[in-house]
Design a protein around this nucleic acid. Structure first.
Length: 389
DNA sequence: TCTGGGGTCCTAGGACCC
DNA sequence: TCTGGGGTCCTAGGACCC
């Protein structure tokens, strides 16, 4: 006998233009203006106010193009600590309703509102939005539905400051008229492939032959068609997922042919990452270097170590070998990146003594000081300014 | 003044082992 | 002389998400 799963009430909480929203909350005189957060030199727009969007500014548009389109645009450099603080406060308001909260990213998450005391899920969801607005001056949109997929689509449908409820039983009719791009996992490439095969609306996917869909999206066909029909039994997961990788990359202010410079930055990035690895009590085994050339083509080379490590010095030889492999083309380099993966738990005896001595400083300070050392030694002009978005 | 940064997951071929 | 599968790890690349 198959048990019928109980009807759930899932909400998706999604902040509106989050980075810009935080800046406006912190500086109310910005409200109503064309504001964006983005990289200043060779950067892109990471978040744009709705006034800026009316002028044609979208993410991830190059900041230079945005300023051309909208010369009055105020571009702010981005302040992650501020955004993390707002994020923490936003989720703590949500936690007042239920502990069944899944933090999806800095600006959005899910919660299971099925079992609230005394309130209907709908009343609670409306009240949540109002609460966040009144207490944080932050505008959010909320979707309510019987599963995560429907809630998430609903939250994005009537931004900003939207509340969208999909009544039980209406899932597939709600999704049917929307474009396939609304489905999770369908990005620009897959949208193009689907469209070429005649699947343009979610209803097209919902009623498709599985064999035809497999030809387009391969093994994700079953999942995609289930989503298109409004089926989604993914649970709301409370625990933070295990970290799979650590990565840092940096775009140079100007493309460079200087291998020594790329090497220096590569090592500095590696040092920063390794400090994080240690402060998380982890070890890593796979090291990867990425190069992006001036023409935006990028290449990666990776190597697994014999044993996991948490020491910077264990990476240098490998990094140099990988960079050497990538250096053959001699094309000017736009970006260098370092990534550590195959993350293991560390036996933390050594770190705990350092902890007591106060060696594990907060992450941001560690990052800043390493970069500053490189800058001090090789000159500020030689280094791309870090874009902290 | 074209095009960031930090992540996750999937695929596919080759090596290697049984 | 001909030539099996299955499993896992390694490496490179790509799509997608926020």
């Amino acid at each position: 006998v198959k048990e019928r799963s109980p009807r759930r009430s899932i909400i998706h909480l999604d902040a509106d233009a989050f980075f810009v929203g935080c800046e406006i909350a912190a500086e109310p005189s910005l409200r109503g203006k064309a504001v964006a957060v983005g990289g200043l030199q060779r950067g892109i727009i990471a978040s744009a106010s709705y006034e800026a969007r009316k002028m044609g500014v979208y993410t991830p548009m190059p900041t230079s193009s945005a300023l051309r389109i909208c010369p009055t645009l105020l571009v702010l450099p981005g302040d992650y600590e501020k955004y993390e603080e707002f994020s923490r406060r936003m989720f703590s308001v949500l936690q007042e309703y239920t502990p069944e909260v899944e933090v999806g990213s800095i600006d959005e998450g899910y919660a299971d509102f099925s079992n609230l005391r005394g309130k209907s899920p709908e009343d609670a969801a409306r009240e949540l939005g109002k609460n966040i607005w009144e207490r944080l001056n932050l505008s959010v949109s909320i979707g309510l539905g019987s599963n995560k997929l429907v809630a998430s689509v609903a939250s994005k449908l009537h931004k900003p400051a939207g509340f969208t409820c999909v009544p039980a039983g209406n899932e597939s009719s709600f999704l049917a008229p929307l474009g396939v791009r609304w489905l999770p996992g369908v990005g620009p490439k897959t949208e193009e492939l689907l469209s070429a095969a005649g699947f343009r609306f979610i209803s097209d996917v919902a009623s498709s032959e599985l064999s035809a869909l497999i030809k387009v999206v391969g093994s994700s066909a079953t999942q995609l068609r289930a989503f298109a029909n409004g089926f989604d039994d993914r649970p709301v997961v409370t625990e933070a997922p295990a970290v799979q990788s650590y990565s840092r990359q940096e775009t140079f202010e100007e493309n460079t042919n200087a291998e020594w410079l790329v090497q220096r930055i590569m090592r500095a990035l590696s040092d920063e990452l390794m400090a994080r690895v240690r402060s998380d009590r982890k070890m890593i085994r796979c090291v990867e270097v990425k190069i992006r050339h001036g023409n935006m083509e990028q290449y990666r080379r990776s190597e697994s170590l014999e044993e996991p490590t948490d020491l910077e010095t264990d990476t240098y030889e490998v990094l140099d070998r990988l960079l050497k492999k990538l250096w053959i083309s001699r094309l000017p380099v736009r970006l260098v990146g370092v990534k550590f993966s195959q993350v293991y738990e560390s036996s933390s005896a050594r770190q705990s003594t350092l902890d007591l001595a106060g060696y594990n400083r907060p992450r941001r300070r560690v990052l800043a000081s390493v970069m500053d050392k490189v800058k001090a030694r090789y000159g500020p002009a030689a280094l791309a300014r870090p874009h902290r978005l």
